[in-house]
């Protein structure tokens, strides 16, 4: 048996919801513990970091604002990959993954907008401007809400899966727009200072807390996402069982 066959077999076995429930049940406690520990370390480092010589204490908002913005985009990227799984391979868990990532992504996008606004007021002198970065992130938030509404509009998850997957992939065009908006257009929002071709421009005393908080947010995302996926599998199982019970009663008449 080749390595490819083994990896395909392992991947395919994950597509079985019962196996996924068993495996995720074993992984979740470790993931949740790692998320809490990294968050505690990240918070300690964030408040131990020096204040900025220009921004003062408000620079501490960066440690929660920037990871929230990264996760808002990462969550949408996870949904886009899952949507490919729905459309191309019809992977049973792909739609579950895409659907359950929605409220989590919406929450991170909301937090990035809110904390950005709370940082912008003392530093820029305004809560909000319609510049390219802020507007494109606001569009991302609306896309999350729109996709959630699409799922709510259809009772049968199987019917919502394909249109939601197509819409998610169309909306993915917004992710590079968000990333490069600060380079393509003249914005009040500052250009990238961490993920740059010439390396980060932030001093290590602030870069390391930021990276640890980003790791913590990523682990929080995967913990919440796995939990939500397990709930969605159970929800669909309950739906199926109720339908079968109703059909059995109808067939018995």
């Amino acid at each position: 048996m080749s390595d490819t066959t083994i990896s395909q077999g392992w991947f395919t076995s994950l597509a079985n919801p019962t196996r996924f429930l068993a495996l995720s049940g074993r992984v979740l406690p470790y993931l949740a513990t790692a998320a809490v520990l990294s968050l505690l370390v990240g918070l300690y480092m964030s408040f131990a970091a020096p204040e900025d010589y220009q921004q003062g204490i408000t620079v501490r908002i960066m440690f929660i604002h920037v990871p929230a913005a990264w996760l808002a985009m990462m969550c949408y990227s996870v949904m886009a990959i899952a949507s490919i799984g729905t459309l191309v391979w019809r992977h049973p868990l792909a739609d579950v993954a895409a659907k359950t990532a929605l409220p989590i992504g919406a929450a991170f996008t909301f937090l990035s907008l809110l904390t950005g606004s709370l940082w912008g007021r003392p530093m820029w002198g305004t809560w909000w401007v319609w510049d390219a970065r802020l507007t494109s992130v606001f569009v991302l938030f609306l896309m999350y809400l729109g996709l959630m509404a699409l799922h709510k509009a259809m009772d049968d998850p199987a019917r919502a899966a394909r249109p939601a997957a197509v819409l998610t992939l169309v909306g993915f065009i917004n992710i590079p727009i968000i990333k490069f908006s600060v380079e393509w257009w003249n914005t009040l929002h500052q250009p990238a200072s961490v993920i740059r071709l010439d390396g980060p421009t932030i001093h290590p005393t602030m870069l390391y807390p930021l990276l640890v908080m980003a790791l913590a947010y990523t682990l929080i995302f995967f913990t919440l996402h796995l939990m939500a996926m397990r709930n969605e599998i159970l929800r669909r199982r309950v739906q199926t069982m109720r339908r079968q019970a109703a059909q059995a009663i109808g067939g018995g008449r």
Binding site: R60, P103, L111, L224, N231
Partner: peptide, 21 residues
Amino acid sequence: FVFLSYGATALTLAGLLIGIV
């Protein structure tokens, strides 16, 4: 501003966790 940012983040993430649980 810092307190409000951290407070709102804690409330939102806690709300998300409680909702999922």
